[in-house]
Design a protein around this nucleic acid. Sequence first.
DNA 1: CCACGTCATCGAAGCGCTTCGACAAGCCAG
DNA 2: CTGGCTTGTCGAAGCGCTTCGATGACGTGG
Lengths: 330, 330
Amino acid sequence: MPGPGRGVTIADVAARAGVAASTVSYVLSGKRSISPETADRVMQAVADLGYHPHAGARSLASRRAGVIAMMLPLRDGMHLPVLMQFASGAVTEARRHDQDVLLMTADEGPSGLARMAASAIVDGLILMDVEVQDPRVETLRRLGLPSVLIGFPADAEGLTCVDLDFTAAGRVCADYLIERGCEDIALLGASEAVYERRTGFAERVREGFLGRSGPRGEVWPCPDDAVAVQRTVKELLTSKPDLTGLAVHNEPAVGHVMHALSDAGKRVGEDFQVVVIGPDEIAERVHPQLPSVLVPAETLAETAVRHLMRKLDGLEVADATLIEPQLTLR
Amino acid sequence: MPGPGRGVTIADVAARAGVAASTVSYVLSGKRSISPETADRVMQAVADLGYHPHAGARSLASRRAGVIAMMLPLRDGMHLPVLMQFASGAVTEARRHDQDVLLMTADEGPSGLARMAASAIVDGLILMDVEVQDPRVETLRRLGLPSVLIGFPADAEGLTCVDLDFTAAGRVCADYLIERGCEDIALLGASEAVYERRTGFAERVREGFLGRSGPRGEVWPCPDDAVAVQRTVKELLTSKPDLTGLAVHNEPAVGHVMHALSDAGKRVGEDFQVVVIGPDEIAERVHPQLPSVLVPAETLAETAVRHLMRKLDGLEVADATLIEPQLTLR
DNA sequence: CCACGTCATCGAAGCGCTTCGACAAGCCAG
DNA sequence: CTGGCTTGTCGAAGCGCTTCGATGACGTGG
């Protein structure tokens, strides 16, 4: 029992190993060479005493907190399970680098970032769900806090960004449908509102899809309420009677689309193919289950953390990184 | 621009306000009385300079980190959206108390707790999803780190626990069905596995339900795959032909149950009543939407944080707190 | 008008760690 | 055998903050 009130300090370890405190520090950090014998003795003392450096003291002396912040849009419409996967991935990867993760909500906004920077409570941060016009971006640039963004703001100059390669996602969907032998195919996109909010990604999916499909493909925007989906699908089928393949890039609409197709006499999975761009649950919850291209939240998180760690170590990192989408068959 | 390399320190604030550093500290903490004039000048300097105390230095000197840890079961079967609500609620409440939140995964286990304690990186912690036999509980007790558990371990002696009042949830469901005029009613529970893992809560729902229903009620455990649900429901209807009310305490099974009932010719919402114990989305996603008793994750989180803060301030806190379930009609 | 609380403020001593410069010891080339 | 490196270790100086005791400057009752 290491004494309940007092914590074990580096001095205790040093005393037990018969060395100076600084030596213990060097053994632990590896910043100077220490003879194997001494190192062993120190490590033994560390283990015996269950020593862990005091985080505050370390951060004060070394100007490195060993903590990174993760700012998530915890309240609004983001798809919760995906966020959670992301958080989980980030924490796991961070622990691999001996870092802890501080959780912030996006509604702390720019002033939250300022607080993080000024209080030196974290070494860097990861900003999730960055929008095209994001008020946090300017603050971030000004603060000079090392950071990695998930998503691409309009002006990404000097920032490190990571995101799903949506163009590739569009391509993957088109390829899937074509390989299944579909002649005419279409992409049912998001509602106008989504396009406006974060122009980038919807546009890119479209390009990827059309680039692969050629003239046999079309892209239709689509609202997400049941009625409008019914109508849109009906119009689409009328306009392209030979349509046998559909990619849906609109999470809430997937269920409605399936109904509409079934109403129109299409047998999905048999004479008609559907592929979804979106999280697994969406594609799994309909009948029949659909193949889907998912946002690889975990990979995204890992990549973001890894990039941040490189920046903290003063290494070069690519400004923009696109993560390959993954097609899951079902 | 506060100078990119250097941070603003308390000394800078003191200089600008023309006082000693200790005075600034006292103004900020309110631990000694300071004349209003001086306090104003100091606050002005703080604002002008955008001063935030260095978290590490503060934690070193005051033995208070201003951070609490939240250990979530980030990887396994927990319902993700609920976890997220919980996390969100906790962060928001913590910020109200000027605390930040460190995110840990449950798979860091007892050694993770030891690290938190020894490195003094957090002042206390919240343990989510505590199981009846939880290896972390003993470590926690030994470490003496202030903590609040969500859930009840077998031996809660000396620990502060918060949880949904599952007995009340069972009662609420039974009451709802009885009030709707159902004669025979049943509770469709979780799969055996869940019962084994965390005996506590399933057991309590059962008691609450039966306590209210009397002999007209029955409790059936139920696996969560489609086929088994179909079978279980069929058997249930055969065994209790006059059944008109059903409570479902099995999140993944809800959709299947609805199918099975519809196959059996029951009109839910008309000649047959169903109520769900589980998160909102589950009850909203089926047709017709069902009334549900939800886990008030946000309230739970807030309560947990509030209790933890009281403990950190050396105040008394009830050992066990049960949160009232809320019935949402739809 | 003096001794004595009160109030507002200051200065200094750490908190536990990292890091820098210093310094013995051992090594090798000359 | 000496001068100059390297290697391994130590001691001391902070990092920025809180907190404790001390110190003036007042006001007040005797």
